[in-house]
């Protein structure tokens, strides 16, 4: 819980507010774990030491997927996790991390802060006495490591792939077999071809898993174009903070999220360079057009089903689809056109 310390007669300004935060990551997990620590350090500095946030990693609380419940129950004041982890408890939390064929990171940030995303997120989380904020972006994730090349839809049939969640559902519609493998056994399973493929994150975090030594194909992404992590706060803990500290916390979270996005971008480029120079045999591939078209069709059908089942899901999906349409037009004639034009002139 939240505790107040400090001299009783002194001004409000001297009170120290302590918040306890649970993260879903193991101690010292790079990038993901840097975001909450960076946030806590900023908040403490900006508040001149009045706001102190301590962070417990998954190895302390042992419940990476229990952060939602623990913050909701007040066992922790805050959490750092990912919204789509809670879709088994609250289905509509799925939409606030990333969606296959969805927005890129800048587009999605624009949707959160200017396109109604934050309000929709509040609609979903408010019922549970929680506040949720963007918590850092991994940038575009890779499509995964494959033992065989995917040349046609036929190659997806019976493909045993470790790919959890909604993207797995999309692949399953095309005849692939999403498979659960505990992370500790992924390496052996892929090496021995117990599974044909798996997805992890991107160069920033994949290289330490060693997959590049055992799988020849690294596919570009389609299913997690902008994975956004999440800060969540118990509403009671939030309400107990004075207004200035609330604002400091808000700014610290937003800045830490941005910092994580650029850190991911940097680490991915660094690690990709390592991959290029030290493992030239790894072939980077993109799914052929007919596969992409079929995946997209399956994705649309599944989303239509979700929208039919739940009016709030419909509202969120429509908001995302409408915003994407508008913002992508700008992306196309700004970044995309720029990249296309300069690659032609090279």
């Amino acid at each position: 819980g939240l505790t107040l310390l400090g001299t009783s007669g002194a001004a409000n300004a001297e009170k120290v507010y302590r918040l306890k935060m649970a993260e879903s990551w193991q101690t010292n997990f790079p990038i993901f774990g840097d975001a909450p620590r960076n946030m806590a350090a900023m908040a403490e500095k900006m508040s001149n030491g009045r706001l102190k946030i301590t962070i417990d990693s998954a190895n302390k609380h042992k419940a990476p997927f229990g952060v939602f419940d623990m913050v909701r129950a007040g066992q922790y004041d805050m959490g750092h996790s990912a919204s789509y982890y809670w879709k088994g408890k609250v289905p509509n939390t799925l939409y606030f991390t990333t969606m296959p064929f969805g927005m890129t990171a800048p587009e999605q940030y624009a949707w959160f802060y200017h396109g109604g995303g934050m309000q929709l997120m509040e609609k979903v989380y408010g019922k549970f006495n929680l506040l949720s904020f963007p918590g850092g972006n991994t940038s575009n994730q890779m499509g995964g490591w494959f033992q065989k090349e995917i040349n046609s839809l036929e190659d997806l049939k019976g493909l045993k792939m470790r790919i959890p969640g909604f993207a797995g559902e999309v692949l399953a519609k095309l005849g692939a077999s999403p498979t659960n493998i505990p992370p500790g056994e992924l390496y052996t399973a892929l090496e021995r071809r117990t599974i044909d493929a798996l997805e992890w994150v991107g160069p920033s975090l994949d290289l330490r898993m060693g997959f590049h030594k055992i799988a020849p194909y690294y596919y570009t992404g389609w299913h997690e174009p902008a994975t956004e992590l999440q800060f969540m706060i118990n509403k009671r803990s939030w309400d107990r903070l004075p207004e200035d500290l609330q604002e400091i916390l808000r700014v610290a979270m937003r800045t830490a999220a941005y910092d994580m996005y650029i850190q991911s971008y940097h680490e991915s480029s660094e690690n990709l360079a390592v991959l290029d120079s030290e493992y030239p045999n790894v072939k980077i591939r993109t799914f052929p057009e007919d596969v992409m078209t079929a995946l997209r069709k399956a994705n649309d059908e599944l989303l239509a089903e979700k929208a039919k089942e739940d009016p709030l899901a419909k509202e969120i999906l429509e908001s995302q689809a409408n915003y994407l349409k508008k913002v992508r037009h700008w992306t196309d004639i700004s970044d995309k056109a720029y990249l296309n034009s300069i690659s032609v002139s090279k």
Partner: peptide
Amino acid sequence: PPSIILIILGDVLGIPVGD
């Protein structure tokens, strides 16, 4: 090998599991 502890250490120390 295969060993859980080596997999975890590989992750923590940033060494490829295969090595």
